Simulated scan of single mutants.
Amino acid sequence: MNLTSQYASITMSLELFQSNKPLALESGEYLSEFELAYTTYGNLNSDKSNVVWVVHALTGDSNVTDWWSGLIGEDKFFDPSDHFIICANLLGSNYGSTNPLSINPGTREPYYYEFPHITPRDLANSLERLRSHLKLEKIHTLIGGSLGGQVALEWAYSLGNKLENLVVLASTAKSSPWVIGFNETQRMAIESDCTWGEKSEFAGLKGLETARAIAMLSYRHPSDLQKKQLDNDHRLDHFKASSYLRYQGQKLAKRFNALSYWVLSKSMDSQDLGRGRGGLESALQQIEARVLTVGVNSDLLFLPEESQFISKHVKRGTYKEIQSTAGHDAFLIEFDQLSYLLQSFYLEKN
């Protein structure tokens, strides 16, 4: 499907990659075949040196102009008139890629709860299949935040000198007990839904609403809620913060499903770049690309020091920090700061 840009020479295309070769997973399981929905925006230059590959976060999709319009688009930092921008919907997500509601080739029924455990390394390996299919020998910039940053970091390890620049936003090389704990409480909320366990695309949706509300508390900072959700009267009930969290839960449940949320949150928990590679420091030393890690001073989920750890132990690392009251989600909001940090990173000489 081709979507017409406001400039005739710039095209956006939504495509589907189908792999019939089994994908071996870290768990010992495998996917006998899989599909990845992906969006490209802009055109390759003559030597294919202008590839910008974006990896979305937990509930994102492949259309980066929907959720990162302040950074990607005409006259934005990553302009499709200069860059060939690509983003694939991650395995497990329900925006066109193989996920728990997809048909299991072995049973001819949806996977549902039998969908295999997938890690950020598995997700990176699926993206590598797509890169090879597209014959993209070099990636100028690989960028991702949160779960997307975990996947980008795993992929950068295996890409070697095929990748020039890696940008990891509000993420980590190994998920902390804090992150795992937040994710587990969300899955507990899904489990408490009486429909969880049913073989239905609607299973666990009320639980997903609660899970999202819990997540929002980790994505924001108390000062942000104080600024935006404070009640200026003396009410006894129906507080702005209560309405806000309920709204966010309902909003996600309308566009996502609990099974995909379960699978991808489990994937986030399992992040450990050093697994089987001699530990984190040793693994980070193997990344050949220039690396920019960006922390958020108010991030309560992925702490700034986790981003600093990455930049400290890679061969060519730089750490920058977004100043914001927004918390973890600042990497999706503070476009001006992020554009400035990216520009300064590209201008730096190694």
Rank of each mutant, 00 (worst) to 15 (best):
Glu74Met: 09
Asp75Gln: 10
Asp75Cys: 02
Lys76Asp: 00
Phe77Met: 03
Phe77Ala: 01
Phe77Asp: 04
Phe78Glu: 07
Phe78Met: 11
Phe78Asn: 10
Asp79Gln: 05
Asp79Ala: 00
Pro80Gln: 08
Ser81Trp: 01
Ser81Thr: 03
Asp82Arg: 03
His83Ile: 03
His83Gly: 07
Phe84Arg: 09
Phe84His: 08
Ile85Phe: 01
Ile85His: 02
Ile86Cys: 01
Cys87Leu: 01
Cys87Asp: 00
Cys87Ala: 03
Ala88Pro: 09
Asn89His: 05
Asn89Met: 05
Leu90Trp: 02
Leu90Gly: 00
Leu91Thr: 00
Gly92Phe: 00
Gly92Arg: 01
Ser93Gly: 11
Ser93Val: 03
Ser93Met: 04
Asn94His: 03
Asn94Pro: 02
Tyr95His: 15
Tyr95Gln: 13
Tyr95Ile: 00
Tyr95Asn: 12
Tyr95Phe: 15
Gly96Ile: 06
Gly96Lys: 08
Ser97Met: 10
Ser97Asn: 09
Ser97Arg: 10
Ser97Ile: 09
Thr98Leu: 03
Thr98Asn: 02
Asn99Arg: 08
Leu101Val: 03
Ser102Lys: 05
Ser102Asn: 01
Ile103Met: 02
Asn104Leu: 12
Asn104Thr: 12
Pro105Thr: 01
Pro105Asp: 02
Gly106Leu: 15
Gly106Pro: 05
Thr107Gly: 06
Thr107Leu: 04
Glu109Gln: 13
Glu109Trp: 04
Glu109Leu: 14
Pro110Ala: 10
Tyr111Gly: 13
Tyr111Asn: 10
Tyr111Lys: 14
Tyr112Gln: 09
Tyr113Asp: 06
Tyr113Trp: 06
Phe115Tyr: 15
Phe115Glu: 07
Phe115Thr: 05
Pro116Cys: 12
Pro116Phe: 13
His117Ala: 14
Ile118Met: 12
Ile118Asp: 14
Ile118Lys: 15
Thr119Ser: 15
Thr119Asn: 12
Thr119Ile: 12
Pro120Tyr: 07
Pro120Leu: 07
Pro120Asn: 11
Pro120Thr: 11
Arg121Ala: 14
Arg121Pro: 06
Asp122Trp: 13
Asp122His: 12
Leu123Trp: 01
Ala124Arg: 10
Ala124Ser: 14
Asn125Leu: 13
Asn125Tyr: 09
Asn125Ala: 15
Asn125Asp: 15
Ser126Val: 05
Leu127Ser: 11
Leu127Phe: 13
Glu128Gln: 11
Glu128His: 10
Arg129Ser: 08
Arg129Asn: 10
Leu130Pro: 11
Leu130Trp: 06
Leu130His: 07
Arg131Leu: 15
Arg131Cys: 13
Arg131His: 09
Arg131Glu: 09
Ser132Met: 14
His133Pro: 10
His133Ile: 06
His133Gly: 04
Leu134Asp: 00
Lys135Met: 06
Lys135Arg: 05
Lys135Trp: 02
Lys135Leu: 00
Lys135Ala: 06
Lys135Thr: 02
Lys135Asp: 03
Leu136Ala: 00
Leu136Thr: 01
Leu136Arg: 04
